[in-house]
Amino acid sequence: MNFNQLKSIYPSAFLTDDSNNDQNYLTFPYQNQWIHFDKKQLTSSESKLLHLILNKETDIKNPENPQSKWYDFLIENNSILPAESGNYRIIQFNIKKKDTNFNKKLWLNAFKSFFENVEAAFFINDHYGLLIQHYSGYSLNQDETIGILQTLDDDFSIKTKGYIGQYWSISLEIKDIFNEEQTIFFNQLDKSKQVFSLPDIALSYYASEALFKSPIIQQLKEELISHSEIKELITAIWLNQGNISLAAKYLYIHRNTLQYRLDRFYEESGLSLKNRDDLLLCYLLTI
Rank of each mutant, 00 (worst) to 15 (best):
53 I>W: 00
159 K>D: 15
10 Y>V: 02
229 E>A: 09
29 P>H: 06
168 W>C: 04
220 L>T: 05
255 R>Q: 14
121 A>L: 05
286 T>S: 07
172 L>K: 11
59 D>T: 13
146 I>W: 00
14 F>V: 09
244 I>T: 11
67 Q>A: 12
149 L>Q: 00
74 L>D: 01
132 I>H: 06
50 L>M: 04
195 V>Y: 10
170 I>F: 00
128 Y>S: 07
200 D>I: 10
59 D>I: 09
280 L>E: 07
228 S>T: 02
40 K>L: 10
209 E>I: 11
206 Y>P: 04
210 A>Q: 11
59 D>L: 14
92 Q>S: 12
100 T>K: 13
191 K>C: 02
61 K>R: 12
261 R>S: 00
273 L>N: 06
200 D>F: 15
138 Y>I: 15
228 S>M: 01
275 N>M: 00
95 I>R: 02
170 I>A: 02
216 I>E: 13
158 I>F: 02
8 S>F: 00
45 S>L: 10
119 E>V: 05
97 K>T: 03
185 F>I: 13
284 L>V: 03
56 K>P: 00
45 S>N: 11
257 T>Y: 07
133 Q>S: 04
229 E>N: 14
64 E>G: 13
101 N>G: 15
79 S>M: 03
109 N>E: 14
92 Q>A: 07
205 Y>G: 02
285 L>E: 05
249 K>M: 04
106 L>H: 05
92 Q>F: 15
170 I>T: 05
276 R>D: 10
156 F>W: 04
175 K>H: 13
102 F>P: 03
1 M>L: 08
